[in-house]
Simulated scan of single mutants.
Amino acid sequence: MPVRIKICGLRTAQDVAAAVACGADDIGLVFFDRSPRHLTLDDAAELALTVPVGIRKVALTVDADDATLDALLARVPIDLLQLHGHETPDRVQEIRQGTGIPVMKAVGIAEAADLDELDAYMAVCEQVLVDAKPPRGGVLPGGNGLAFDWTLLEGRSWPVPWMLAGGLRPSNVAEAIRLTGAPQVDVSSGVESAPGVKDPDMIRDFCAAVRGV
């Protein structure tokens, strides 16, 4: 099976067009006001209309309460919720049951012991995002351009689909896939010319590197 590609943090119709043209499978929309990739609900609703049928629309939220999620889902057509905060397994299950939307939980990894946290989330969501832990004192839970030691994932398998994130870019994504066996990859800052500004050439090169593995 081809490796699935998610381009996250898209903000314009041109971003979406570039990602789709290069073969991206998932479009990530960020709803976190401290991120340079943050979208208002109105902007996200308009942007979602430019996403072709068959491309999965993923909403990244951080510790969102029920009212925030309800407002988001009432306004923007979303296929998958990406929970990128400190949501507990109980909260993940509550969101999944309350919204009826499939959920992907992000888990930050810095050392082998962090992998144990994945098991609890795999019991309550459709898939997990294995990401690098944010830097100490950082304000963004993801999209920091940081990688972790990919050899920690060598030879591992899990009962639900998983996606690799954290410091991926055109020059290293092929190596990351070979080391980890990742069936899905997620990129944001690795295809940007500035924070929140996607570069179509970098998106093209990233997708080509993935497809070339």
Rank of each mutant, 00 (worst) to 15 (best):
Pro2Phe: 12
Val3His: 07
Ile5Asn: 09
Ile5Leu: 05
Lys6Asn: 02
Lys6Val: 00
Gly9Pro: 14
Gly9Ser: 10
Gly9Trp: 13
Ala13Arg: 15
Asp15Phe: 08
Val16Tyr: 07
Ala17Lys: 13
Ala17Gln: 15
Ala18Arg: 06
Ala18Pro: 09
Cys22Thr: 14
Gly23Glu: 05
Asp25Arg: 14
Asp26Gln: 15
Ile27Cys: 06
Gly28Leu: 03
Leu29Pro: 06
Val30Ser: 03
Val30Asn: 07
Phe31Thr: 00
Phe31Gln: 02
Phe32Ser: 00
Arg37Ala: 08
Arg37Cys: 09
His38Asp: 15
Thr40Lys: 06
Asp42Ile: 05
Ala44Phe: 01
Ala45Arg: 13
Ala45Tyr: 00
Glu46Asn: 13
Ala48Thr: 01
Leu49Gln: 15
Thr50Pro: 01
Val51His: 02
Pro52Val: 09
Pro52Trp: 09
Val53Ser: 14
Gly54Asp: 05
Gly54Lys: 05
Ile55Glu: 06
Arg56Val: 11
Arg56Thr: 14
Val58Phe: 04
Val58His: 05
Thr61Ala: 06
Val62Tyr: 14
Asp63Trp: 12
Asp63Phe: 03
Asp63Gln: 02
Asp66Glu: 14
Ala71Pro: 01
Leu72Glu: 02
Leu72Pro: 00
Leu73Asn: 01
Leu73Lys: 00
Ala74Cys: 10
Arg75Ile: 00
Arg75Lys: 14
Asp79Ala: 09
Leu80Gly: 08
Gln82Asn: 06
Gln82His: 11
Gln82Leu: 02
Leu83Gly: 00
Leu83Asp: 00
Gly85Ser: 07
His86Arg: 15
Thr88Pro: 00
Thr88Asn: 00
Pro89Gln: 04
Pro89Cys: 03
Val92Leu: 01
Val92Ser: 00
Gln93Gly: 03
Glu94Tyr: 13
Glu94Ala: 13
Ile101Cys: 11
Pro102Thr: 04
Lys105Pro: 00
Lys105Cys: 01
Ala110Lys: 13
Ala110Gly: 09
Leu115Gln: 05
Leu118Cys: 05
Leu118Gly: 07
Val124Phe: 09
Cys125Thr: 10
Gln127Thr: 13
Val128Asn: 11
Val130Asp: 10
Lys133Thr: 11
Lys133Gly: 06
Lys133Ile: 01
Gly138Val: 06
Val139Arg: 13
Val139Tyr: 03
Val139Thr: 11
Gly142Cys: 12
Gly143Ile: 10
Asp149Ala: 10
Asp149Val: 00
Trp150Thr: 14
Leu153Gln: 07
Gly155Gln: 08
Gly155Ala: 07
Gly155Thr: 07
Arg156Ala: 03
Arg156Met: 10
Ser157Asn: 10
Trp158Asn: 06
Pro159Gly: 02
Pro159Asn: 11
Pro161Ile: 06
Trp162Asn: 08
Met163Ser: 08
Met163Phe: 03
Ala165Cys: 01
Gly166Trp: 09
Gly166Gln: 11
Gly167Asn: 10
Leu168Met: 04
Leu168Gln: 09
Asn172Ile: 04
Ala174Glu: 12
Thr180Arg: 12
Ala182Ser: 05
Gln184Arg: 15
Gln184Val: 08
Asp186Gly: 09
Asp186Met: 10
Asp186Lys: 08
Ser188Ala: 15
Ser188Trp: 07
Ser189Gly: 02
Ser189Lys: 05
Ser189Pro: 03
Gly190Asn: 06
Glu192Gln: 06
Glu192Tyr: 04
Glu192Asn: 07
Glu192Ile: 05
Pro195Thr: 07
Val197Leu: 12
Lys198Cys: 04
Asp199Val: 01
Asp199Met: 01
Ile203Pro: 12
Asp205Gln: 15
Phe206Ser: 02
Val213Trp: 01
Val213Glu: 05
